[in-house]
Simulated scan of single mutants.
Amino acid sequence: MTNPAPETIAPSLALIEQLAHEAISTLPEPFREPATLIRLRIEDFPQDEMLEALDLTDAFELTGMYEGTPLTEKSVMDQPTQPDTIWLFRRPILDEWAERGDVSIGDMVTHVVIHELAHHFGWSDEDIAAIDPWWE
C-alpha cells in the first residue's frame, strides 16, 4: 500500500499547533511576547462542558475558545488559579476551512488564534482588523 500524498491528508493536531505558534510569532510588538505566555491546547473537538457553558449544541460551531481572565480585568492582587489558555478545535477548524475553500489552513488557524487573543488582550474590532486583515 502506498502512502497518500501529503496534500490529501487532513492537517494533524501537531500541524494546527505549529501554525498557531507561527501566528503568535508574527504578532506585532508589544503583543508577541505576552502572547507566548498563553497556553495553547489543540483538541479535535471541544469538551461537552465547554459547549454547555456557551449554550452550544453543535461541536462544529466552536473553532476556538479563550479560557482565562482578560488583561483588561486582571489585577496585580489576583492569584492565578490556572494559566490563560487558548483552545483550538481541529475538526471545526478543518470543517470551516473546507467550506470556505478560499483560504489556506495557515490563514484559517491565524484567524482563530487572533480572535481568541482578542479576548485576552481586550482588542477592539479595529485592533483585530489591523492585526488580521481577514477580508483581504
Rank of each mutant, 00 (worst) to 15 (best):
residue 23 A to N: 05
residue 99 E to Q: 13
residue 100 R to C: 10
residue 128 I to K: 10
residue 83 P to R: 07
residue 103 V to R: 15
residue 42 I to P: 02
residue 28 P to Q: 04
residue 14 A to G: 10
residue 72 T to S: 15
residue 17 E to M: 08
residue 3 N to P: 00
residue 128 I to H: 03
residue 50 M to Q: 13
residue 8 T to L: 12
residue 54 L to G: 03
residue 10 A to M: 09
residue 55 D to L: 05
residue 8 T to Q: 11
residue 108 M to K: 12
residue 71 L to K: 14
residue 111 H to C: 08
residue 27 L to F: 10
residue 76 V to E: 11
residue 54 L to D: 02
residue 111 H to R: 13
residue 99 E to I: 12
residue 12 S to A: 13
residue 69 T to S: 09
residue 104 S to T: 15
residue 67 E to A: 12
residue 122 G to R: 01
residue 99 E to K: 14
residue 109 V to P: 08
residue 26 T to M: 09
residue 122 G to H: 05
residue 112 V to G: 05
residue 116 E to I: 08
residue 57 T to F: 01
residue 62 L to F: 04
residue 4 P to V: 10
residue 48 D to W: 03
residue 122 G to T: 07
residue 102 D to M: 10
residue 62 L to W: 03
residue 16 I to R: 02
residue 7 E to Q: 14
residue 99 E to F: 05
residue 52 E to N: 02
residue 70 P to H: 06
residue 133 P to V: 07
residue 52 E to F: 01
residue 19 L to W: 10
residue 110 T to H: 08
residue 21 H to F: 13
residue 76 V to H: 09
residue 4 P to M: 12
residue 25 S to T: 08
residue 16 I to L: 14
residue 78 D to Y: 04
residue 6 P to G: 12
residue 85 T to C: 08
residue 62 L to Y: 03
residue 90 R to Y: 07
residue 51 L to P: 03
residue 105 I to S: 02
residue 4 P to R: 13
residue 17 E to T: 09
residue 25 S to Y: 01
residue 45 F to M: 15
residue 24 I to C: 11
residue 25 S to K: 12
residue 87 W to A: 06
residue 54 L to W: 04
residue 9 I to W: 00
residue 97 W to R: 01
residue 103 V to F: 01
residue 43 E to P: 02
residue 44 D to K: 05
residue 52 E to L: 07
residue 46 P to W: 01
residue 38 I to L: 14
residue 11 P to I: 06
residue 131 I to T: 05
residue 45 F to C: 03
residue 127 D to I: 04
residue 96 E to L: 13
residue 4 P to I: 09
residue 32 R to P: 05
residue 60 F to R: 06
residue 73 E to N: 11
residue 35 A to S: 15
residue 86 I to V: 15
residue 51 L to A: 01
residue 54 L to P: 02
residue 50 M to C: 09
residue 67 E to G: 04
residue 72 T to N: 05
residue 37 L to V: 02
residue 15 L to I: 10
residue 73 E to C: 06
residue 38 I to Y: 05
residue 126 E to P: 00
residue 115 H to R: 13
residue 135 W to Y: 14
residue 89 F to P: 00
residue 120 H to A: 12
residue 130 A to H: 09
residue 136 E to I: 07
residue 79 Q to M: 08
residue 62 L to H: 02
residue 38 I to V: 15
residue 16 I to T: 15
residue 94 L to P: 04
residue 55 D to C: 05
residue 32 R to Y: 00
residue 53 A to V: 01
residue 129 A to F: 01
residue 33 E to H: 11
residue 52 E to V: 10
residue 130 A to K: 09
residue 60 F to Q: 02
residue 77 M to L: 15
residue 37 L to K: 11
residue 37 L to C: 07
residue 68 G to P: 06
residue 46 P to T: 10
residue 20 A to R: 04
residue 34 P to K: 03
residue 123 W to I: 07
residue 110 T to Y: 06
residue 101 G to V: 10
residue 2 T to F: 14
residue 98 A to D: 13
residue 1 M to S: 15
residue 77 M to N: 11
residue 127 D to E: 13
residue 127 D to Q: 13
residue 27 L to Q: 05
residue 82 Q to L: 07
residue 29 E to Y: 08
residue 47 Q to M: 10
residue 106 G to D: 14
residue 15 L to Y: 09
